[in-house]
């Protein structure tokens, strides 16, 4: 059985050593690169070392995790990345996934989870535990909504289409007319409409009012 070649990129020596010793206890894993930042990592790669999986910290000096992933995508597409971060913020998870990470683990993850993540990813599957998935979905859902209209903007758009005047909308939403106007301008910008009539027309055509 061939062992899985692993690279560890983290700016903390102690942490690298910890992971190293953890993996060294198992014959299946071979740590081929231990780099303290992206630059060092790519130097090793350039020297011919070929890891299967890289355990990548996100926050590092010199070259951070996101940059490393971007570069890997084009230069070494076969190397799969598992982000190993202290951040439990959904934004980091989403960005990592967008950057091409196969997995996302918190640094205080258990040994078992780390190993099963490595195994999954090595077999070409993505690995995100339930908590991470939840955070990611939450983050992505918010993101997809903001790309078009926000909840409030949709609400306001609907009210405008129902013939409510600015004052009525403001009263219903407990916001000032000033804010309603700002939102209306915002909606028109997003829908690329020049006036209210065009805004309603476009909203109907794109099914925003359904």
């Amino acid at each position: 059985m061939t062992s899985i070649n692993i690279a560890i990129v983290d700016d903390h020596q102690l942490f690298r050593d910890g992971i190293h010793s953890l993996l060294a206890a198992n014959d299946q894993y071979r740590v081929v690169i231990s780099a303290s930042n992206g630059t060092e990592f790519f130097e090793s790669l350039a020297s011919g070392v070929k890891p299967d999986i890289v355990l990548l910290d996100l926050t590092m000096p010199e070259m951070d995790g996101f940059e490393v992933m971007q570069k890997l995508k084009t230069a070494y597409p076969h190397i799969k990345t598992i982000a190993l971060s202290m951040h439990d913020d959904g934004n980091y998870i989403t960005k990592s996934v967008r950057s091409g990470a196969y997995g996302y683990l918190l640094k205080n993850t258990d040994e078992d989870e780390l190993l099963s993540a490595i195994q999954s990813v090595y077999r070409g599957r993505k690995y995100f535990n339930q908590e991470i998935t939840g955070k990611m979905i939450n983050n992505l859902s918010a993101e997809s909504e903001t790309k078009k209209l926000s909840i409030k903007e949709k609400e306001i758009l609907k009210m405008i289409s129902e013939g409510l005047i600015t004052k009525e909308i403001a009263d219903q939403l407990f916001i000032s007319t000033r804010t309603v106007e700002t939102h209306r301008v915002n909606i028109m910008k997003k829908l690329n409409a020049k006036n209210t009539a065009e805004m309603i027309k476009k909203a109907v055509l794109t099914g925003l009012l359904e």
Partner: peptide, 18 residues
């Protein structure tokens, strides 16, 4: 705290596991 204590603790965890 994040970059100093965090890794120390994670390292500690790894060490304990070993």
């Amino acid at each position: 705290m994040h970059d100093g204590l965090g890794p120390l603790l994670t390292s500690l965890k790894l060490t304990i596991q070993a």
